[in-house]
């Protein structure tokens, strides 16, 4: 049994789960300034029961990195030290603002609203920035920093897309109509970001270039961008159809947005494999002692199905359209 490979996949699944799940609630946070006070209350209610559990996937992802690839944990988080701090400060303000904004009054509420938005934005941008640094192997220099900043902005766009399509699922009436518009803006932003990043990545990394331009495999790989384009098209079409009441189900834009993320993630995984730190550490070089991997795998195999099951229960309990005032 190839334990490091299994843990790499497990970590990939956790990170993808985190990005999609916390992505939508970070996205909702970034969209707050575009809504009225009453709409903000509904928006917050739509993510209220879930955000705690969503963030736990980040702890699991980082936990697996720490437990299964301790060498990489040190290298990656050491190189990303300051963006990690920025992300954590963003997440902290945001998480606490979430609880405080409804309990505060007057200018205090305004302040927490602002911190909720700013924290969501800072955390999202920092995550994208870290991804950019990670892909480029933490190279220093202006070009690499610019690349990372573009990835940061793209991830913000992606989260806005997830957040907006989530609101399409969870809201109705005027707010849903607004969310449909935000979804399209988010989609354009994502298209621009994914396009730029796809063009730039082979230029900044020789390893990725070699993996992508390796005929005839390149032709088979074209499935990924094609699927991504198709998912984007579905977002565009279904948001239009929902706006015109032409019978597209309200979950379709969100599902397609999740597909965009999953496909991009697969592409990224393909580009980086078998490295956990590009050009420096493979997953086997960075892996922890097999004894600890085995113990954690047994636990994960037993517990993960339960986690998935009760997460599903929680989403079932809170199904349907969100109403405001959950926190009052």
């Amino acid at each position: 049994m190839d334990l490091p490979l299994i843990f790499m996949m497990l970590m990939g699944v956790s990170v993808l789960a985190y990005v999609v799940l916390d992505g939508y609630d970070l996205g909702v946070g970034m969209l707050m300034p575009a809504a009225s006070a009453a709409e903000q209350s509904v928006m917050v209610s739509s993510i209220g029961p879930f955000w705690d559990a969503n963030e736990t996937w980040l702890v699991l992802g980082v936990g697996i990195l720490l437990v299964a690839f301790p060498l990489a944990h040190g290298v990656v988080l050491g190189a990303l030290y300051l963006p990690v701090v920025a992300m954590l400060v963003g997440l902290m303000f945001r998480g606490v603002a979430f609880e405080l904004r409804m309990k505060a009054l007057g200018w205090h509420r305004e302040l927490w609203n602002w911190l909720f938005w700013a924290g969501s934005f800072l955390a999202s941008f920092a995550q994208g920035f870290m991804l950019g640094r990670y892909i480029t192997g933490f190279e220093r220099g202006f070009g690499f920093l610019l690349f990372s900043a573009i990835v940061g902005a793209s991830v913000c766009g992606g989260y806005v897309l997830l957040g907006a399509t989530w609101l399409v699922v969870k809201t109705e009436g005027e707010l849903q109509r607004k969310a449909l518009g935000w979804s399209r803006w988010g989609l354009l932003w994502v298209a621009l970001g994914v396009g730029l990043v796809s063009l730039a990545t082979p230029m900044v990394s020789e390893t990725v270039r070699a993996k992508w331009f390796d005929f005839p495999r390149t032709l088979a790989l074209m499935v990924l961008p094609a699927a991504c384009l198709w998912a984007g098209f579905i977002v565009w079409r279904s948001t239009g159809r929902i706006a015109r009441h032409q019978g597209s189900p309200d979950w379709q834009p969100f599902a397609a947005a999740v597909a965009i993320f999953a496909i991009s993630f697969l592409g990224l995984a393909y580009s980086l494999y078998p490295y956990v730190v590009i050009d420096r550490l493979t997953i086997w070089e960075a892996a922890a002692h097999p004894s600890s991997l085995k113990v954690v795998l047994v636990g994960a195999a037993i517990v993960l199905p339960f986690i998935v099951a009760y997460t599903a229960i929680s989403y079932r309990v809170f199904r349907g359209k969100a109403k405001g005032g959950l926190y009052d």
Binding site: T56, V59, L60, G63, V67, A68, G299, V303, Y310
Partner: peptide
């Protein structure tokens, strides 16, 4: 590592979800 991992797996998700 495994002790921390078990905390996340058995406790964090349980409390955060419920």
């Amino acid at each position: 590592g495994p002790l921390l991992g078990y905390e996340v797996l058995t406790a964090f998700f349980l409390e955060a979800t419920f």
